[in-house]
Structures are given as structure tokens and as C-alpha cells.
Nucleic acid binder design. Structure first.
Length: 622
RNA sequence: GCGCCUGUAGCUCAGCUGGAUAGAGCAACGGACUUCUAAUCCGUGGGUCGCAGGUUCGAAUCCUGCCAGGCGCGCCA
């Protein structure tokens, strides 16, 4: 038994036992038994549940329970009097008396438990034995979880906003897996629709312009430099194959497009910003290219190639950022395979969707949405929502039982309808979980700037990584709760890069590595039972911190909150630095030396694990 | 108008499924390297937890109202 370890089994992940069947904390169990007995003697109708908490204050012992304060009313006695009585009863239990060193009534009626040295030794022994997997939750093959994140239009470089979701999603994925969940990750490629069309046209225009043809960017086209780069690459490959077609197009469209000097359109004109994120009516005048087969084919070509180029870049960049996906899923595929029509037809057949005013609607109101939503427009064109339904149906068909989507805050209005849709598809509620991540604000010299992919105004993920490196960038991006909007000032980030707490944590790891390199032959990590090791409070603080790791993992996973791992890692590193300052590892008394080396070893493993969960490296030296 | 998120130290934020004296980093000031890495450690100052009620033995945490900021409320994607 391990008295320090309360709720979770340390490293005991073998077997497929449910958490309920995991080894139960003995203290909690024994205490609960005593409480139950006592409660019936007192004639209480309900047996109160005794919760053991970890007090923040060291003076309050290792565990504390507020039980007696909660009982006071029904028992009609003062909390402190109750606590005194419970204390005596608990101490009469031999098993409790064995591991508990002190039991005090404190404050308004808390009961504080202080553990004896033996408890620390036992805990440390178990953690050391657990090895690399210490903290890993019991494997749970079900539900099969699909985690989708980033998922953008491949029409521009990833900016820091995407970077945040990438860092968050990837850390979450690692965390969930480590907690025992069965997770696969997915990137939904939004490679269909008008935005992509517009992007393809922009590339085509740049291609034509590189030959000196005055083909203007489409209205609300993409102005970033990368568009020219892609065009140049395409030109290198196909030479002038599409020049003639586009020259013809230029002749048709140049009439009403004073947009010819687009390359210089740095700042948007005041009136122009109004349309920044708005799509024009379906018939976009300046987008009217000749409607012949050749032009269409050319546009398709440019769109596909542009998309392909962007995707390649994203994949490379994400990989360099340490983010890999199990699956890249193309939206276009859903359209070409007729999946939308299929699912819409089925929804109509089952009565979940209905036809009204020449459009087809999904009945989402009965499942928590404000209004029913259009699946197929009057003009027969299916909505993005319809595609998303087909996509989520595909996920379910692939055997995923729980779907998690990470979306930006600007999509939160979309959540109810999607949940309603998945509820219909899955035939049950709760299959879809949407995590809304708040946005990243861009600051320049204290001024808030609006990012826009289309105008090419953004800070890219690549720029951030170049400025401060992958480790600092990832640590920074996941260090705050996803519920918090994040302000990013690139210059400030660059200047403060050296102060990034990631180095504090990494340094602890490197220091331990250094100690281990200096360990003389014959000295080994060991926790001698029955000895008087862990006499120094800094050692015990470290043991306690390490011991809470499995709980921190489960808690962070349940709350989808990898930033808690960040906080924990900093605390752990802090505990270690203090320990290091006061406790020499090599060259002291053999038992002490061995137990301290064990402490170092486990600390190193846990720090490396935390950094690993965040996608940050754990250097052996710095 | 309605919905979601946020408001905690000078700054950036933890803590939020209720617990004891509200924490960390940065910034400011003062100390500590003959010993395993000083990217470290120790100390000092700094707070009406947006405001007002309510629930509770106990509220930064839960409920209600208000104030302030962000995001959203399409047959856009």
C-alpha cells in the first residue's frame, strides 16, 4: 500500500481494470469505515463522505478533512468537539496509527493528518519502481476518441492563432493518451468552397502577372507575398501553359477592375474594411471570368496546385512544430464522393430534415438550437453545415465513439447546430464535445492589430518560432488556459524570450542529468526501507510533489487543461531547485545519497514527461 | 437585444465541480557562487479577487443583478 498516494495508483496501468477497481487509497478507506461506524452510533441518517484534501499550507499536514464542519449542523455539535471525538476513534485504528505520524484538530474544525517517514519511503519506492511510465493512467480502449484541431482553409500560412490551437490540441492529445484514453488526431482540410476558389484565382492572377499580363486579383483576393511564391513555383513547373487562357481572361475582366495596382494595396481603404470578412453576393462582378471549359479547367488547376502547395507547407511547418496528425481529411472528397447528397437524403427520409421554401432544413431546434438550419439552399447548393454533417458521419462510421473538436471562439455560435446534428447521427447525446479556444490578439507597440489572411497581415507561426524557438513558443502558447484570450507582441516575446519559464524547467532537467553523469561507480538509486532518509523538509516537499503527478495528469486530462501541466512542471522544477540548493546528492552518507539519487531520477523522469506532454524538449545539458 | 468567454499584485496570468493567512513569473530593491550546472537560491515591498446582493459553518470559486472588454448571432465558410 502507498499511504501518500490517495486517489490514483502509481504507475499501475497494467490490466484493463476500471478506475473504480484500482487499488483504493487505504487511508481514505479506513477513515471512511471509522466514520461510517461513528455516524451510525451518532444516529445520523446519512453517512457523510470523508474527503481527504491536500492542504496548501505545509503547517496543515499532508492531508486534511473538513468533514466535522460539514457534520456540525446535523449532529448538533460543535465542529471542534466532533473532530476531537473522530480523532480518538481514528487513532484507535491500528492501520491508521501505523502510517499517520500526527493527527490534529485545527482551525474551525479541520482534522489534519501528518504522515510519518515510512509513508514517504513507501511512496518513493513505488514511484521509483514505476519507471518511465509513472503517472500513466490505466489504459481505456473505449470510448475511441477522435480529436480534431487546427483544421483551416489551406489558403495561407499558419498564423499564431492557428499555432495556439496546434500547440493546445497537440498537448491535449498527448495528455489524453497519457491519461489512458484512446485518441486519434485529425486535421480537416477545408479545401472546398468560395474561399479556396478565390485563392486559386489569386494565384492564377499572380502567375499571369509574372508574365506581364495585367490580370487583377479577384475582389477580396489574397494579397500575401506567399501567393506570388506559389505562382512562381507553378510557373517553373508548367511554364506558359496557362498564359494564353489567362490573357483572355484578363481581357474580359480588366474592364471594371481598377484593382490593377493590387501589389501596393498595403492598408485597406477605410471603406474597404467594411467588407473585410464579408462575402459578396453569389454573383461577384469582378470575379466574372470567362465561363468556358478551358478557363474552368485552368482555374481548377490553379486551385488544386495552390491548395496542394499550402498543405505541404502546413504539414512541414506543423511537423517542425512537433505536431503530427493521424489523419488529414479532405472536405473536397466528401463532395466528389457524393456524401452530402447521401446524408441529406437519409435525413429527409428519417424526417429529421424537411423541405421548405425550396430549401432543405435540418430540425435542430428540438435538440437545443435556436432555429432550424439550412442544409441545401434554394439554389440547390449544399451548405458548409451539410458538408460538416457528412464529415462527422464519416468519423462515426470509422468507429469513433467520442468526437472532440477544437474551434476558435469565432465559431462558438456554430456549436449547438453541430451538436444537434451529431446527436441525430449518433442517436445519442454527448457524442460531440466542442472545445472553444479563445483568440490570439496581435499587439504591436501596445496597439491591437487585426490579423487578416486575405490581406496578408498576420504574424505567422513560422515567424514566432524563428523569433523564440519551438520550445519557448509551445510553452508560451499552452501556458494559459484556452479560455483566455492571448495577447502576443512579437517584439516583446523576442525580448523576453530568455525569461521564458520553459528554461527554468529545462534547467532543472539538465541539472539532474549533470548529477547523474557525475555519479561514481557503485552508487545507485535506492530507497532504503526502515532508514531515516527524507529527514530534510525540501526532500519531503519534492516527494509529495512527485507523488501528486498522477492526480495532476488525470485532473488536467479531465478538464482538457494542458496548461495545468505547465504550472505543475514549474512547481516541480522549483521544488527541485530548492532541494538542489540544500541537499547534496553525491558524497554524503550512503543511504541518504542513494535515496536522494532516487529522488533525482524520478524528478527527471517526471519533468521529462511533463515537457514531453507539452511537446517541449528535455535537454541533458544547457 | 440574445448567447459564449473574460475581469485576481505595476504587467502577464495560475487558482474557479466551495475550505484555513489568495499564489507564480516578469518588473523594483537587497543579499548568496573554494563543493553535483548561479538559466539557480534567499529576502523585501506590492491585493476593495470588476461592483452590489444572495446561498453556506466557510465564497476569488456557486446563484442573481449590474458595469467593462472580447467573440458570435447568414440559404458565408
Amino acid at each position: 500500500m502507498n499511504p501518500i498516494t490517495t486517489r490514483c495508483s502509481t504507475g499501475a496501468r497494467l490490466g484493463q481494470s476500471d478506475r473504480d477497481e484500482d487499488e483504493r487509497d487505504v487511508i481514505t478507506e479506513r477513515v471512511q469505515r471509522v466514520v461510517a461506524e461513528w455516524a451510525s452510533e451518532l444516529g445520523l441518517s446519512e453517512i457523510p463522505v470523508c474527503r481527504l484534501e491536500r492542504p496548501a499550507e505545509e503547517a496543515h499536514g499532508d492531508y486534511a478533512t473538513p468533514l466535522c464542519m460539514q457534520m456540525a449542523k446535523t449532529a448538533r455539535r460543535s465542529p471542534r468537539a466532533l473532530a476531537e471525538e473522530l480523532r480518538a476513534r481514528l487513532l484507535a485504528d491500528p492501520e491508521i496509527a501505523r502510517v499517520v505520524d500526527g493527527l490534529e484538530v485545527a482551525g474551525p474544525g479541520f482534522l489534519n493528518f501528518t504522515l510519518g517517514r515510512a509513508a514517504y519511503i513507501e511512496a518513493m519506492t513505488e514511484m521509483l519502481a514505476a519507471g518511465e511510465d509513472f503517472g500513466h493512467g490505466a489504459d481505456r480502449p473505449h470510448p475511441r476518441v477522435n480529436l480534431e484541431f487546427v483544421s483551416v482553409n489551406p489558403n495561407g500560412p499558419l498564423h499564431v492563432g492557428h499555432g495556439r490551437y496546434a500547440a493546445y490540441g497537440d498537448a491535449l492529445q498527448r495528455l489524453l493518451k497519457f491519461s489512458g484514453m484512446n485518441v486519434a488526431t485529425e486535421f480537416y482540410i477545408n479545401d472546398y468552397g468560395r474561399q479556396m476558389d478565390r485563392f486559386g484565382r489569386s494565384v492564377a492572377a499572380r502567375y499571369a502577372q509574372s508574365f506581364g499580363v495585367n490580370l487583377s486579383l479577384p475582389r477580396d483576393g489574397y494579397h500575401g507575398e506567399y501567393v506570388k511564391t506559389i505562382a512562381t513555383d507553378i510557373r517553373a513547373e508548367v511554364d506558359d501553359r496557362y498564359l494564353e487562357i489567362l490573357t483572355r481572361a484578363a481581357a474580359t475582366t480588366s474592364t471594371g477592375a481598377p484593382d490593377g495596382n493590387t501589389s501596393k494595396s498595403a492598408g485597406p481603404a477605410p471603406g474597404e474594411t467594411l467588407y473585410e470578412d464579408e462575402d459578396e453576393e453569389p454573383s461577384e462582378r469582378s470575379d466574372e471570368w470567362p465561363d468556358d471549359a478551358l478557363t474552368k479547367e485552368a482555374l481548377l488547376f490553379f486551385r488544386q496546385r495552390a491548395c496542394q502547395a499550402m498543405l505541404e507547407e502546413m504539414r512541414t511547418e506543423l511537423e517542425a512544430f512537433g505536431v503530427l496528425f493521424d489523419c488529414w481529411f479532405s472536405e473536397t472528397r466528401l463532395h466528389t464522393e457524393g456524401r452530402l447528397e447521401e446524408v441529406v437524403r437519409r435525413l429527409v427520409e428519417t424526417g429529421e430534415a424537411y423541405r421548405e421554401g425550396d430549401a432543405i432544413w435540418l430540425r435542430t431546434t428540438t435538440r437545443g438550437d435556436d432555429k432550424d438550419r439550412v442544409l441545401v439552399r434554394q439554389n440547390g447548393v449544399p451548405t458548409y453545415f451539410a458538408a460538416d454533417i457528412a464529415y462527422h458521419e464519416d468519423k462515426l462510421e470509422r468507429g469513433f465513439e467520442h468526437l472532440i473538436n477544437i474551434w476558435g471562439a469565432d465559431h462558438h455560435g456554430y456549436v449547438p447546430r453541430m451538436k444537434a446534428a451529431v446527436e441525430i447521427l449518433a442517436g445519442r447525446t454527448g457524442a460531440l464535445e466542442v472545445i472553444i479556444g479563445q483568440l490570439v490578439n496581435l499587439l504591436e507597440e501596445g496597439e491591437l492589430k487585426q490579423m487578416s489572411t486575405r490581406r496578408g497581415e498576420m504574424v505567422t507561426l513560422a515567424e514566432l518560432v524563428e523569433a523564440i524557438g519551438v520550445d519557448a513558443a509551445r510553452f508560451f502558447l499552452v501556458s494559459r488556459s484556452h479560455d483566455q484570450t492571448l495577447d502576443l507582441d512579437l517584439d516583446l516575446a523576442r525580448r523576453q524570450s530568455q525569461d521564458n519559464p520553459v528554461y527554468y524547467v529545462q534547467y532543472a532537467h539538465a541539472r539532474i542529468a549533470s548529477i547523474i553523469r557525475n555519479v561514481p561507480a557503485g552508487m545507485e538509486a535506492r530507497v532504503p526501507a526502515g532508514s531515516d532518509v527524507f529527514a530534510v523538509p525540501y526532500e519531503r516537499a519534492l516527494v509529495k510533489r512527485l507523488e501528486s503527478f498522477p492526480d495532476v495528469v488525470q485532473d488536467a486530462a479531465e478538464r482538457r487543461a494542458p496548461h495545468r501541466i505547465v504550472g505543475y512542471a514549474q512547481e516541480l522544477a522549483g521544488d527541485f531547485h530548492v532541494f538542489y540548493k540544500h541537499c547534496r546528492v553525491i558524497g554524503t552518507a550512503p543511504d541518504e545519497s542513494a535515496s536522494r539519487l532516487a529522488l533525482c531520477l524520478v524528478t527527471k523522469r517526471v519533468i521529462a514527461r511533463c515537457l514531453g506532454l507539452l511537446g517541449v524538449s528535455a535537454p541533458e545539458s544547457m
